[in-house]
Design a protein around this nucleic acid. Structure first.
Lengths: 139, 139
DNA sequence: CTTGAACCTCTAGTTGCTAGAGCAATTACA
DNA sequence: TGTAATTGCTCTAGCAACTAGAGGTTCAAG
């Protein structure tokens, strides 16, 4: 029921130095220590770390995760803020997709503008990289 | 025809410290200096910086830009490598879009799983953030 | 000639880790 | 029980691509 940092790492897929980093950043509680000063974790830490990991995989920035953890310490509070954080992250992901799609279109145009079959001097790829006014739309 | 770093900044939209940073990183040539040690740029520097700026806007990492600049110094070489760089970046952008779309789907599910109208204790958003096994697909 | 804006260098901070040095504790096996 | 391999500890530095600030100098306008 008590396990080492290596065990915790194995069970969550979070690397050992990252676990220590999360502790330092206050996302994980400071665990108990053995007489020899090694960290020992409990079930609750495992769940907490799983939570953090999943949030990170979903792209949440650490302050947002901090807020969610803070929130989860107060079971009686309304959960509207958790909802807000999810919606914000969704919006940010959508913004990034929009932006990347524009880049995709431009890069596709650039990459096909020249098959790599002449010299640098007359290369349309290099021209296109150098000249924003050749782009179809803003990016 | 000679201009200061501030002028260069205004004309390209690249911030002054960023210009100095690019010089330090070898993307820009070291410019001539006034007697008082201030940088003075020429037309060529303006074009070079515009090139860099556009590449960065398109998401190219600095090593790729370095390669393109290297390449453009040799007008007689074949330009197949420029083509390769464009295609690589296109691929990387497409990968990122694919990944973000998965996140978008999960976040949408999470964000709508609870309207923020109960307490933290029974909040589906918090549950969903904590439990990867609730996800529809890998991310 | 003076004043204020722009310039200079250098250092440190951002985000979320990751790598390495140099040492201590634990665990497995003989 | 001895010892060797593994795992753990702290601390510092590095990554990408900038950005911010301190403390001081030069330039250009009036």
């Amino acid at each position: 029921m008590e396990f080492s940092i290596g065990e915790l790492s194995k069970r969550t897929g979070v690397k050992v130095p990252t676990i220590r980093y999360y502790e330092q950043e206050g996302l994980l509680n400071t665990p108990i220590r053995t007489e020899g000063n090694q960290r020992r974790y409990l079930q609750g830490d495992l769940e907490r770390l799983g939570f953090i990991r999943h949030c990170r995989d979903l792209g949440l920035p650490m302050p947002a995760i901090r807020d969610l953890i803070e929130l989860s310490q107060h079971p009686d509070k309304p959960c509207s803020q958790a909802n807000r954080i999810a919606i914000e992250q969704l919006k940010s992901v959508r913004d990034r997709i929009r932006h990347l799609k524009k880049l995709e279109a431009e890069l596709k145009r650039i990459a096909t503008s020249c098959e790599g079959d002449h010299t640098v001097l007359e290369c349309n790829v290099l021209k296109a990289f150098g000249d924003h006014s050749l782009c179809r739309e803003e990016h």
